[in-house]
Computed example of a mutant assay.
Amino acid sequence: MPTISKKGKLMPASPIRKLVPYAEQAIKAGKHIYHLNIGQPDIKTPEVALNAVKENDIDILSYSRSEGSEQYRKKLAKYYAKHNIDVSHEDIIVTTGASEALLFLFSSIMDPGDEVIISEPFYANYIAFSTATGVNVVPAICSIDNNFALPPVDTFEKLITPKTKGILICNPGNPTGCLYSKEDIEQLSTLAIKHDLFLVADEVYREFVYDGHTHHSILQMEGIDQHAVIIDSVSKRYSMCGARVGCLVSKNKTVMQTVLKFAQARLSPPTYAQIASEAALDTPQSYFDDVIKEYVERRNILITELQKIKGVKVAVPKGAFYCIVELPIKNSDDFAQWLLEDFDVDGETVMVAPAGGFYSTPSVGINQIRIAYVLNKESLLKAVTILKEALNVYKD
């Protein structure tokens, strides 16, 4: 019988999606599920984006350029200028989501066996991207005890080996909601320049920053141009997860020329989704003001209610819309499955993402979950109430 590849065997299942079969069975059994497991916002997509597709008169749905339409990239450059990021459209390659941008980048700047340092816990698919490209993840471990603050820069420096090609951060962070300070970004930039490494920042949650804090992009730093790469996406910013449009931004011409070859191999990003994404750039600031106000209220309700549960520890997010929660249990994978298979309160239960999949370090985070507070406030309150009841009766 033919066998699959070693790489295929090593490819991890998504901690966010692997429980879907149990959720489907729960729904068939008549249960209502509050989904705290996935970052699918319930915020409405801006009408200007939807209308751009509905009202378009395309009669031949043709390929776009491999790097994305020039019109969209020029408009993106103006968007970045508003955020004090000085780039031209030639510094941007449009991708099929941020995921493709990272896959292209890993393939462009690292060979199999090379290493990338990532602050941990991190977005679970980073492990999948590293597995797909044969790259080794080296974790810079963060702790819930100090709200997942970035480790001291000397911690990163001690992890650098001859195989290290880059440092990857997510800012604001998924799954922690951690926001890095200007000093954090400056120190990482200095380190990248000192050791001639790439500094890669996943900045898809740039707009989602709370409590008067400011987002600091790596491309705002001095002297970093040849080392810095931004990964970005429309998915969360405009509640357009299904568009699957992202981009890669860098002033390093060699990197961009190399990434373009991978982009050419997959032909082009989706045309209609680029039309929607280009129109979304006209979304008024009032949209974001309302969205941020809503997320702050949701966060505050969630954190307040979680802190009332005995034995629960929770990190307070400063950005994005996720938090890591440590539970008084041994194994969150078992707990999450039990919630779907064997537990309900009046026919309702919750679905969470076990946090172990957001760590590369074995046995770390196995009593934690990630919660995405993308439900309305009433649903969040109900979900936490159910979670509390579940913890009262759950037996490891």
Rank of each mutant, 00 (worst) to 15 (best):
Q220P: 10
L380N: 11
V384T: 02
A336T: 04
T155N: 15
F148K: 05
S69Q: 13
C241G: 09
Q307L: 00
D86C: 02
S108T: 11
V291Q: 06
T385Q: 06
P354I: 08
I4Q: 06
Y359W: 11
L191M: 02
S181I: 13
E297V: 07
V291H: 01
S360P: 03
L381M: 03
E47Y: 11
D346W: 03
A132L: 13
D232Q: 07
Q40T: 15
Y22H: 11
R299P: 04
D59M: 07
A101I: 07
S130C: 15
F148S: 03
A263E: 02
F148R: 02
I301F: 10
V296L: 03
A263M: 09
T131Y: 09
L248H: 05
V296Q: 11
L105S: 07
S360H: 11
A13E: 14
N331L: 05
P354L: 12
K377S: 14
L103N: 14
D184N: 15
K163R: 13
I230H: 03
R73C: 06
S107R: 10
A336W: 01
E341R: 10
H32A: 01
P2Q: 10
Y34D: 01
L191N: 04
R299H: 13
T155H: 15
P15E: 03
Y359M: 08
I160A: 00
L103E: 14
T155S: 13
R237C: 10
L248D: 01
P270F: 05
V259Q: 08
K158W: 15
A265R: 14
K44L: 15
S286N: 11
V153L: 03
S217R: 00
G223K: 14
I386C: 01
Y205Q: 11
N84M: 11
Y210D: 04
P12G: 13
I118T: 06
I169H: 04
D346E: 09
I185L: 05
E70A: 05
P2V: 12
R299S: 05
A132M: 14
K158P: 06
N56V: 15
P172M: 00
L179H: 10
M240T: 05
L339D: 04
V384E: 01
Y123Q: 06
